[in-house]
């Protein structure tokens, strides 16, 4: 087995909330990410799913270097990407890039497409104008735009075209890992299909690894190779897309899947469901909270473990 491209070990991110007394006593901490570990292989699409506030975006920000982890290790090709010994921003930019959710907010309205795309190239040492133009032209073609589009400004484009520009900007430095933060949820239904198709094409063509953050499980099922289900800062289930969608083991995963309004399901079952009861129990253990009551985020959760229940399928159980 080849070494993973990205390896995250026991990542913790805590945020101080409410100041506390003198010397920081009585300070309350919010455990946004609570000891998560996973790896991302080359060419793979790994999705992190969970509801708002479960820590999926914080995890992604840590990998991008935009949020310093409190504890834990993030390695890219065996080398640390965060914490002591981490490379600078410039190095990291060549390894990991991000496509943002809202293409209306994430492009500078005062920069033409060309200057948005040329800036990172210049920063990374490309000086020849012809080479910069050449790369921009290739990239615009890759994302389904034409070289003439380079001279226009963001307001001249539709939402779908803007997201294409966002993708072009993420890919211009040829990163190996692309973080997709809800890449289609701000787009109209008719545009979503085009962007999903484009992302899958680019992944194949350029050998990209995707780390996708989403709460739209039908998109996740369509695009992912593996899925992590997060709940209140922890991974509660991890597995290939087949395991997660065909045989979800954790009650929270089942709840998430049951909650998707799907036309087929809605027409074939009389009632909207929000929980499936026939959860297999593992000997002598129980699952951590099924999501019907929110756990206390201020105190660290009871020790629990991820247990392997299949070849690449893990689920979190509460300690006995």
């Amino acid at each position: 087995m080849t070494a993973p491209l990205l390896q995250v070990d026991d990542l913790h991110v805590r945020f101080p909330i409410s100041g506390g007394g003198l010397l920081g006593r009585g300070r309350r901490m919010l455990h946004a990410v609570n000891g998560i570990s996973f790896s991302l292989a080359k060419g793979e699409c790994l999705s992190i799913v969970g509801e708002s506030g479960c820590g999926k975006s914080t995890t992604a920000l840590s990998i991008l270097g935009l949020q310093e982890p409190t504890e834990g290790m993030i390695r890219y090709r065996g080398l640390p990407l965060a914490g002591p010994g981490a490379p600078g921003r410039m190095q990291r930019a060549k390894a990991v890039q991000m496509v943002f959710q809202d293409p209306y907010a994430s492009l500078n309205p005062r920069q033409s497409v060309r200057s948005s795309l040329a800036a990172p190239l210049r920063l990374h040492g490309f000086t020849a104008g012809s080479e910069i133009d050449g790369r921009i032209e290739v990239m615009l073609k890759n994302v389904g735009l034409t070289p003439e589009h380079a001279n226009r400004y963001p307001h001249e484009f539709s939402g779908g075209q803007r997201q294409r520009i966002g993708i072009a900007r993420a890919l211009i430095l040829e990163p190996e890992i692309v973080v997709l933060d809800e890449p289609v949820s701000a787009l109209d239904v008719s545009i979503r299909a085009q962007i999903i198709n484009l992302l899958l094409d680019l992944q194949e063509k350029l050998g990209l690894s995707y780390l996708m953050i989403s709460h739209d499980l039908s998109v996740v099922e369509h695009m992912s190779d593996r899925v992590l289900v997060m709940y209140f800062g922890q991974i509660v289930e991890e597995g290939g897309w087949r395991e997660i969608f065909e045989a979800p083991a954790h009650p929270y995963t089942r709840r998430l899947i049951a909650a998707i309004p799907d036309p087929e399901k809605a027409l074939n079952t009389a009632e909207l469901q929000d929980c499936v009861s026939d959860v297999p129990q593992f000997a002598g253990r129980s699952f951590i909270s099924d999501g019907s009551t929110a756990p206390d985020v201020f105190t660290a959760p009871a020790p629990s473990e991820l247990v392997e229940i299949g070849a690449s399928h893990k689920v979190r159980l509460a300690s006995a």
């Binding site: 008719s190 979503r192 039908s218 099922e221 695009m223 087929e264 399901k265």
Partner: peptide, 16 residues
């Protein structure tokens, strides 16, 4: 135009 839950396990990944 939209991926449907369960369609990938039934028919494999189809282009939208």
């Amino acid at each position: 135009a939209l991926p449907r839950l369960g369609s990938r396990s039934q028919h494999g990944r189809q282009r939208l």
